[in-house]
Design a binder for these strands. Structure first.
Lengths: 208, 208
DNA sequence: CCCGGCATCAGCCAATTGGCCATCGCGGAG
DNA sequence: CTCCGCGATGGCCAATTGGCTGATGCCGGG
């Protein structure tokens, strides 16, 4: 019997997962949590085999990646299977770096979900096809390696600042800002600031 | 007994709603659908009292607002209660205009959900507190009434097009595009294209 | 019937942007 | 030790953008 803890701040989603999972003979939900603290408490007390983790915990709160890291830091850490709505870049990486075993999309059919849970319990890595594809795309070519500084520029950009203002904000010259922007354009495959903002938001490089 | 049909493309969410609702003596889920066609089919065959509608149906597909409109156009239309993750502007309006009775957030506690369903079945209007607040905010001041045409411009803008390209795309002159942009800037409270894209995405006027 | 909002278009002008090229210091990988 | 990537900078120049004023046609509400 595989013991599972659900971490998601949506009661509806928790109920859905519980209903689906409890229909499986070899799976059992042993606890639920809606945030970081509750997750730590229930995981330490129940010692589940697998934690199903929603990445987009609430708005602005400690993200699923942070909770994942916290859980993996426990003495006998559970395997973590991330379950989320989006399949866009940076979240995936952060979650996997935080120690998640796998990554499934919420709109995955139940069968895929069950298989993923069992595989995770066995210590295998599970990735949604589209997620895997994204990862491959990401590591294969020039790899969209937006540097930290470039992210800063993108954030200011999304606030509508001009080059001069960004320069002031970042304590660099306008030329430098332009340089960063040029790099951003090539990396994101766009050639305007507006396009860069949209691309950055879409790939979750920045959030709104 | 109130008959309910669930329209949501996430199996997990459907299962969750079904599990929660079936725990209520006076509520019963009589059907599920994951898209426009299925929704029309199951609603005509089951004649539910209330339809629980997810607004963000899939990516790019016919949105929940469209499905709502289609359902309300049926001979004996069911009451529609929109259930969604976000409480940001434009979606709400579109759904209500499409004939939805009310609007609840997915992270609402189950009790609120049940109460909402019963109220909707009685023909009452239900709005999540935050949604109601948003509506008030929206109608009170200058009201961010982005016109349809302006949304088109914003979409092209987010794809990084220049004024000239947008003009070609929209079959108007460059001057017209600039005019639309100026209006957009004042309405969104920004003064650059990049800022406009970010603001538009944040308020869910456009999606990525 | 008039007014306001929407969409359309025009011209002017200053400021900003984006492309391109070249340089420099620094720290890590080979 | 050398090469490479990142961050920072300078300059040049054409194209684009954004602000402003003003005007027209159409439609719907008061």
């Amino acid at each position: 019997m595989i013991g599972i803890v659900l971490v998601d701040d949506h009661p509806v989603v928790r109920a859905g997962l519980r209903a689906l999972i409890d229909g499986q003979a070899d799976l059992s939900v042993v606890g639920e949590a809606d945030g970081l603290d509750a997750a730590l408490a229930v995981v330490t007390s129940e010692g589940p085999d697998v934690v199903l983790m929603d990445l987009s915990l609430g708005t602005g709160k400690a993200g699923g990646a942070a909770v994942t890291a916290a859980l993996r830091a426990l003495p006998a850490p559970p395997e973590v299977l991330v379950l989320t709505t989006y399949d866009t870049e940076s979240d995936i990486l952060r979650a996997l770096e935080a120690g998640a075993r796998g990554y499934l999309l919420k709109d995955a059919p139940p069968d895929e979900l069950f298989a993923g849970i069992r595989a995770t319990a066995r210590g295998e890595t599970v990735l949604s096809p589209s997620v895997a594809a994204t990862l491959v795309r990401r590591t294969t070519p020039g790899a969209t390696t937006i540097t930290e500084r470039e992210v800063e520029v993108l954030e200011l950009l999304s606030r509508g600042l001009g080059n001069k203002e960004m320069a002031r904000e970042l304590f660099v010259s306008e030329a430098t800002v332009k340089s960063h922007l040029s790099h951003i354009y090539t990396k994101l495959g766009v050639d305007t600031r507006a396009g860069a903002v949209a691309a950055a938001i879409e790939r979750r490089i920045i959030r709104t």
